[in-house]
Design a protein around this nucleic acid. Structure first.
Lengths: 216, 216
DNA sequence: CCCGGTATACTTGTCTAACAATCTGGAGCC
DNA sequence: GGCTCCAGATTGTTAGACAAGTATACCGGG
């Protein structure tokens, strides 16, 4: 292999690079990603390329049928809705538990602070801190399995964002205001109100993203 | 390969057989599962055995460090608690949504009917229908991602059951009564009461299993 | 002109063989 | 007794090969 540092192994490195390429939008959803192409692209043997591809298929980043080339999975409107409904389920549960102990997740507040620095800028720049805010709420539970389940959803959202390339985003002001309201309600111990704000927050994002994905 | 029918491919078949062996308790958690052993056991080449092992590592059934043999993952009390807390989060969300539309999941009722046929028998026999009851509630949402997240938890529970070999189970009567109460409350639209029963139901199972896992 | 069947090229699935890298465990030495 | 080092075992990676399956292009018939 010629590029990338070898941290754990060739397969993992290639898988990581491929994932970044898929999420970054460098791999269009419809072009086939053959084992030979991956092997040549990263200068590894075909079995290694195969293993990396299969790892990403297992994670849901790529998809492939038997004897067919892998592709970056294209997310349709139904998939977006499913992702967001599942997000809402997990985040609502997290908010309820956090509100019960009135524990304000610090990492979420920090992500909000970063969003605030982009108040005048483009919505694209806050995709990352926004996802970090939501992840921070879930991670505050300290549950390995809950966090893992949520992380895979976030990865899908990120991939989806790359697919629509910034179309259908919400204004930075609205996002920030709702985030802070959620944190306030958690600190106040008002779980139901916080969940209601979250439902609206995610619901609007869901609608926008679903529409953007459905558009040409 | 010499045994097993070839449905999709050698790797998947081996992975499936290995998973069954792990869940069924035929593979003790501490004995190393080497690639060579798997290859010999199922009469496949070592790369195929390797791929099957890595697939299960990705699913969390096996674990392995770099250059070390894989092992069946041993679940400790903390893992059991994490699994059950995550279960409660997902199931609670499912129950709330089902209660909102007062839709009684038929598949769950069917699983309960099967539990009822074992009223006098051993608690071990109802592990499967019990897990099916809970899965049916989640599956009733019709959400691919929520179901997938929940299924991986159920697999861990199943593996854990094999590990403790029937110790620490709850009486069949209690389980059945609570299941039916949950279904009633869902049908009545009383989400909070249903969630409360579920929390107690899962909480008790969590305590029992955690204790059984911690015991020698 | 369109339709269907065949042939070909491409891709994946699997295996054999080999070597490098790394870890484990014990023998030997201080 | 503790430490070092070596040999065996295991995994990591590669190369090459062949089989099997799929898609596509092509060609003949209707």
């Amino acid at each position: 292999m010629v590029e990338g540092i070898r941290v754990t192994g060739v397969v993992d490195a290639v898988a990581e690079a491929l994932r970044a390429a898929a999420i970054g939008g460098e791999l269009e959803p419809d072009r086939p990603v053959t084992e030979a192409w991956v092997a040549a692209r990263f200068a590894v043997a075909r079995p290694s390329a195969k293993a990396a591809i299969e790892k990403l298929v297992g994670e849901g980043v790529l998809e492939r049928a038997a004897h067919r080339s892998a592709r970056v999975r294209r997310l349709d409107a139904d998939a977006v809705r499913d992702v967001y409904r599942t997000r809402r389920r997990i985040e609502s549960a997290a908010i309820r538990e956090l509100a019960a102990t009135r524990s304000r997740p610090d990492a979420a507040a920090e992500a909000d602070a970063e969003i605030a620095t982009h108040l005048g800028g483009s919505s694209v720049d806050i995709v990352d801190p926004d996802l970090r805010f939501h992840s921070a709420i879930v991670d505050a539970l300290g549950s390995e399995r809950t966090s893992r389940a949520y992380r895979s959803l976030i990865e899908e959202v990120r991939q989806c964002m790359a697919q629509v390339q910034g179309r259908g985003l919400i204004s930075v002001d609205t996002i920030l205001a709702e985030h802070e309201r959620i944190l306030e309600l958690i600190a106040a111990g008002d779980a139901e109100a916080a969940v209601a704000v979250l439902a609206e927050h995610l619901g609007r994002a869901e609608e926008r993203l679903a529409a953007a994905v459905a558009a040409p």
